[in-house]
Design a protein around this nucleic acid. Structure first.
Lengths: 211, 211
DNA sequence: CTAATTTCGAACTATTTGGTTTTATAATGC
DNA sequence: GCATTATAAAACCAAATAGTTCGAAATTAG
């Protein structure tokens, strides 16, 4: 059962499928959906034109796969940034910091495929996906807030739903500013202050002295 | 001096220049920069192809003019929404409401040309323009906060700069959600709560009872 | 009314783009 | 080695696109 039927028979592929998809992500990320031609994808993915069509399909299909894979990776990383820290403030700061850092990474396009690029794609399936991605993001933050109530870090009447939406809206704002070139340093400071805004008036343990 | 040398000589134009530009704005707004072809502009602006090139130039030139004109109109309206109301809360709510309403107008594309579309245009001049537009927006909100300090509506140590950035980031977040189809009603409620977030802990006159 | 001037509309050309076909190459199994 | 299977690389084709040209139309100046 270990011997996983080994290799397929014919000529082996010269590229790695998931690797090629990640490269496609970068292409869409930097040029936007409509700005990308098939030749851009051929060049960026390192996959020949016919193989590209045979294995991935047309531009729309490639984008959908790239978007979903990217959203999964990024969602996992954001979840980790949000749920790993002990204190609530570290969680929210971590979440916003991650948004800023991944949107200002060297060697990658600025901004975020989900936040900046995908909303401009006029496609019903993309739109549905984004709706659920947004809902998933706020649900995640909401969950962290509820945990904080259980832990007694914020009062039970903490407005969980409203604050979760605000955290994600602030993250969107930071990410869009990253796209237009606002420096990482500025955004990191803003992320910190955004976390303060959302939390400090409520935190039982720390209080409001920093405001 | 009144008689402004009247009409130019040849055949009169069949379109209005600024009107055609506004129509171009709608085209870019709904399809994004790269999604627009010259034929889209010809159809949307009601200007023949040769006239379009002769009078407006190529796609990039049209976009730049449309963007700047749109930003001016919208900036003026936002300024009015922000500076007209008496109370600070009405100002911030008005500002955020205006962002939501103009991003969810019936008969127009969703979102905002400046916030959603222009950041994806890979062009140095567009990027510079957006940087200054963002700076102008936060400066406007900052000014309103300073007025509120002068009026004694918030304490003198109110964190003017941080709150201004947060208000505009929240507006960006709301606008991006408008683009992906979040209903106006939802966004209007979120705008209201966002204003509360930014203000309620500080307001001297109303207090914090609503939190 | 005629000439000059400017715009309009349709047709035209060259280039780019999306998608396919064709031929060559690299592996496996007998 | 030889048949089989699958990919790669390049050429190919049709449709879309950007930008221009040209004759007809609409206006003003004389």
């Amino acid at each position: 059962m270990i011997q996983n039927t080994a290799r397929p028979r014919g000529r082996p592929r010269s590229f790695d499928e998931t690797g090629a998809l990640e490269k496609a992500t970068q292409v869409f990320w930097s040029k936007g959906y409509d700005g990308v031609t098939i030749d851009d994808l051929v060049a960026g993915m390192g996959v020949g034109r016919p193989s590209l069509y045979a294995i991935f399909g047309d531009k729309r299909a490639i984008f959908l796969r790239a978007l979903k894979a990217y959203a999964e990776r990024k969602g996992a990383a954001a979840t980790k940034a949000l749920l790993a820290p002990q204190t609530l403030r570290d969680s929210i700061v971590g979440f916003l910091r991650y948004a800023v850092e991944s949107a200002t990474e060297k060697g990658s396009a600025r901004g975020c495929l989900v936040v900046c690029v995908a909303p401009l794609v006029n496609d019903a399936e993309v739109q549905r996906f984004l709706q659920s991605a947004v809902a998933g993001g706020t649900a995640l933050v909401e969950r962290r807030f509820r945990d904080a109530i259980s832990a007694g870090d914020v009062p039970p009447d903490f407005p969980v739903a409203a604050r979760a939406i605000q955290v994600t809206d602030l993250a969107r704002g930071l990410t869009m500013r990253a796209r237009i070139g606002t420096p990482r340093k500025t955004l990191l400071k803003d992320a910190e202050e955004a976390a303060d805004l959302v939390l400090l008036p409520h935190l039982k343990t720390i209080g409001k002295q920093k405001l």
